[in-house]
């Protein structure tokens, strides 16, 4: 059974169209929902919860129809809103116990689950203190904990990294990844930053102005094109010559976004055919008596992949740094 089946989903607020004939089918896993502010991410999540009626089109969440089975969906789905939603005068434990009960857990089970999920999200002694004194990072954890309290099959996380510092962001991303892998709970996580989602998601969908512009498996996208970055002490061109003679694609210089101190005489990129490529590079360098400083396999970034469509309707968030799409071949 697919996790989400969305067909021509449209949601209009008067004259504003938040979702425009959006169709996608997604399998269980960690799914990233990327889009700029106002692209329709939150609207999509709320529509999937059955909280907002769709203007037209249909969608199933875990096989349940959003139009007719809203309560059933909300029973097995957890929701973490984008905004703050925590009362300051109760402790995290009391709050998560209460929200667990509101999801239909009996008292003892709610207590047990609250203790479990708070530990999993990384709240320990502080969970007995009133939420009012928590940092943003701790609040985000409590919000996540209440979404997990009833052991959902899917959690919808709306901008969970919002307002977090880089360290907190990474911890939150790691936690989300664990929810998908260790906990076995599917995740739909939204963000306006593609870069942070590509690290943790199995599948990325990109929404722009309410329309689906991309839907890609992360593994396909990032493994498809792998280049080996080689740094040598000198005479990179000679190695490039040997490698291209043996049928390898070679690019000079470096990909993008990195230090500008890379020189064509010291750096080159080689397409990895298989593991023998590494040996060939090593042997070539050895036979030419050139010092091999390092070999580094590059990962294709999704940002590069999404560059071209994003360029048509540039948005600050989706557009990334310049890509290595157009290598200047350097036979040297």
């Amino acid at each position: 059974m697919s996790l989400l089946t969305i067909e021509n989903l449209t949601k209009s607020y008067g004259s504003v169209t938040a979702l425009d004939r959006l169709s996608v089918t997604l399998d269980p896993g960690v799914i990233g929902l990327v889009g700029a502010n106002g692209a329709g991410k939150s609207t999509l999540i709320k529509t999937l919860l059955g909280l907002l009626p769709a203007t037209s089109g249909s969608a199933q969440v875990l096989g349940l129809d959003i139009a007719t089975q809203g309560p059933a969906i909300r029973g097995i789905v957890g929701y973490m809103p984008e905004h703050d939603c925590l009362p300051p005068d109760v402790s995290a434990t009391e709050f998560v116990v209460h929200m667990g009960k509101m999801s239909g857990l009996p008292m003892t089970a709610a207590r047990e689950r609250a203790a479990d999920v708070l530990r999993h999200v990384g709240l320990y002694e502080e969970r007995y203190r009133p939420i009012g004194g928590y940092s943003t990072g701790m609040r985000q954890r409590v919000k996540l904990a209440q979404a997990l309290a009833h052991d959902p099959k899917l959690v919808l996380l709306d901008e969970p990294t919002n307002g977090l510092d880089p360290a907190g962001r990474n911890e939150m991303l790691g936690l989300i990844r664990r929810i998908g892998t260790e906990f076995g709970i599917s995740v739909l996580v939204s963000s306006h930053l593609l870069g942070e989602l590509e690290q943790i998601c199995d599948h990325i969908i990109v929404v722009e102005s309410g329309r689906l512009t991309r839907s890609t498996r992360t593994s396909d996208a990032t493994a498809a094109s792998s280049w080996l970055e080689i740094e040598v002490t000198d005479r990179a061109g000679e190695i490039a010559q040997v490698l291209s003679d043996t049928g390898h694609s070679v690019r000079a210089g470096q990909s993008s976004g990195h230090s500008s101190q890379l020189s064509p005489t010291r750096h080159l990129l080689v397409e990895v055919k298989d593991d023998t490529t590494y040996d060939l590079v090593r042997d070539t360098a050895c036979s030419l008596e050139i010092g091999l400083v390092r070999m580094h396999r590059l990962r294709q970034h999704l940002t590069d992949l999404f560059q071209s469509p994003a360029a048509e309707a540039p948005t600050a968030s989706v557009a990334g740094p310049p890509s290595p799409e157009k290598p200047h071949a350097d036979p040297s």
Binding site: L49, G75, Y79, C85, P87, P88
Partner: peptide, 13 residues
């Protein structure tokens, strides 16, 4: 404190 959205995102009407 907008906790209301957490109630409404649960099964009870």
């Amino acid at each position: 404190f907008r906790t209301i959205s957490l109630y409404f995102s649960r099964p009870i009407p």
